[in-house]
Amino acid sequence: MSDQTLGAQHPGAVLRGAVDLSSLRERATTAAAPAPATGDAPAPPLVFDATDANFATVLELSRTVPVVVDLWAEWCGPCKQLSPVLEKIVTELGGRLVLAKVDVDANPQLAQSFRAQSIPLVVALVAGQPVQLFTGAVPEQQVREVFAQLLQLAAQQGVTGTVPQGPVDPDAEQREEEVSALPPLHQEAFEAIEAGDYARAATAYEAALVEDPRDEQARAGLGQVRLLERVQGLDLQDSRAAAAAAPEDPEAQFAVADLDLAGGHVEDAFGRLLDLFAVLPDDERAPVRERLLELFGLVGDTDPRVLRARGRLSSLLF
């Protein structure tokens, strides 16, 4: 099975390029990791931590039951919003899926293999092969829909095993408490995202930034929900046709750039806006620069694609 993608029809699904797990498949490991239950062997937990050292065993587990992989970091506010939702749904599914949690700061090889340029990033493993799901703190109903599609795909690949109700990661309850203890405006944004009300979520994050301009979690969340709000309801073919018909219309080009970024075509999105910036008069360039900076922030300032795009932007400015 080649790398596959689910969730592309969902407006919030920011998908990355194909992942490369070859080095992880080949790595021999003696570290403890979840394994399928056989005979009297204990069942693996439904939610567990995956690491660079034990991931070969996680890949093997995915030949029995689909494995959802949650790439997160301690500093990531949207991660703390999404993780309890994933844990809740996986637990409700009663062992038809398991959830492997990857701290990207502690596991750089996995972060690189999955190209985790923006987190939370959620992918799946079916029979050892990656299936890309979505990026960002998406609403609970959308997670349920994507997981249902994942189970259908797994069944097509013959991966229909279940894990008996084993223990859940002991940190799960603590993470749920952390979500419930979010600052009021962050909690309001999270609830709005779950309801699919991206405009209200953006307003809450904007208010949080007024209270504390250094709130990086609010800044990251605001960028994500603004993108979700903009691409909601857009049709890719119609948007591309409109952009082709009006190559110097910023709004038409913005729509396709947003859709490209949401589809994982990062360089296409940047290239489209940089080409537009290059042909516009100086007094019309500001909105394009602002949109580029916003998209740079979503992908990550240290990403090589961002660094290249920033270099070209600088050359166009000076």
Rank of each mutant, 00 (worst) to 15 (best):
L151W: 08
A53E: 15
P164Y: 08
S118G: 15
R289S: 12
L71N: 08
L280W: 08
E177F: 03
S239F: 06
V163C: 10
V210K: 13
L185H: 01
V122D: 02
E178A: 15
Q141T: 07
G17Q: 12
G161I: 09
G223C: 10
Q132W: 02
L293H: 01
P120S: 07
D235L: 07
E176P: 00
R115H: 10
E140L: 00
E229H: 07
E294H: 13
V65K: 07
E248A: 14
F277K: 07
Q81L: 02
A195N: 03
D301R: 13
P281G: 06
A195K: 08
R310S: 12
K88Y: 00
G136E: 00
E248S: 12
V67N: 09
A116V: 06
A56M: 00
H186Q: 09
A181L: 02
G158S: 03
R115W: 02
L21H: 05
L71D: 05
E92M: 03
F114P: 10
T302Y: 04
S83F: 12
D249L: 05
A204D: 05
L24V: 12
D260Q: 13
A31E: 12
A154R: 05
L317I: 10
A207D: 10
H10G: 01
V14T: 07
Q112M: 13
E248P: 04
L276M: 08
V163Q: 09
Q217L: 03
F114R: 08
D249H: 14
D40L: 09
L261G: 03
W72R: 07
A111C: 10
S315A: 15
V69K: 08
L273H: 02
D275G: 09
E176V: 08
A242G: 03
R272C: 07
